[in-house]
């Protein structure tokens, strides 16, 4: 166990946990966007920055990836933290002006109108979809491609990826709704990835919901369980 101070409160955390994890365990709120409990921390959105005053610092660190150390002194609500988050929120609003999550976040941080306009889609490059596809689904159908202003989430060669199993985890996880799911009758397709296939009907309810590859996997697991 490590003991550290967050906002003047002495708190304990398990060895190897991040500042964010310890803070949340003790009910101390830190905003996040690219963080998800089920995924490896990424440190991409920079909303979770906190001020580290000791043993190093003072400096801003991303609490989702910064380990909780013995004797650390952390502030999550100081002026420098708020200034940093406000700037991050403004940039995010510039990147995804129509996303409700971002609008709410910006309003909470006191940002009304972003001074910059960064893109016309709602993707904020948080990488949740890419990481879920890799870490949870294991399909590796999409990745972050290009660099700088042209960076985007895409399947290889920007054409439909046959690695996509149509599980729609990416659609579900996307915080800004940048990935669209359109259901047209029996044809379930994740349009953002240009992946288009006939969904397989459930044998019990008759509803069309599964990608063919996924249906084979499910049947395999079920037959193994029944064996």
């Amino acid at each position: 166990m490590v003991t550290l101070s967050i906002n003047g409160q002495q708190v304990q955390g398990v060895d190897g946990s991040s500042i964010l994890e310890v803070a949340r365990e003790h009910g101390i709120e830190i905003p996040t966007l690219c963080y998800h409990e089920a995924l490896e921390p990424y440190g991409g959105c920079r909303l979770c920055v906190v001020e580290l005053k000791a043993p190093r610092g003072p400096r801003l660190v991303a609490s989702c990836v910064y380990p909780a150390e013995e004797g650390a002194v952390v502030e999550t609500d100081s002026e420098i933290v708020h200034r940093s988050r406000r700037m991050t929120a403004e940039l995010l609003l510039g990147a995804a002006p129509n996303a409700k999550v971002i609008q709410a976040l910006a309003a909470r941080m006191g940002v009304e109108k972003p001074r910059v306009s960064l893109s016309d889609n709602n993707c904020i490059l948080c990488g949740l979809c890419v990481r879920a596809c890799r870490e949870i689904v294991g399909a590796n159908a999409i990745s972050l491609v290009n660099r700088g202003f042209t960076k985007e989430v895409s399947p290889p060669f920007e054409i439909g990826s046959n690695a996509c199993v149509g599980c729609t985890t990416c659609v579900f996880l996307c915080p800004t709704g940048a990935i669209k799911l359109e259901e047209v009758l029996a044809n379930r397709s994740v349009h953002h990835w240009d992946s288009d296939f006939e969904a397989v009907a459930c044998k019990i309810c008759g509803d069309h919901y599964l990608a063919p590859e996924l249906a084979v996997d499910v049947e395999k697991v079920l037959s193994e369980e029944n064996a």
Binding site: C133, R134, N140, A141, I142, S143, L144, V145, N146, R147, P155, P156, F157, S161, A163
Partner: peptide, 12 residues
């Protein structure tokens, strides 16, 4: 190596 990863590196 997943093709998506190779493509990511190749375009970066």
């Amino acid at each position: 190596v997943p093709l998506s990863q190779t493509y990511g590196v190749a375009t970066f």
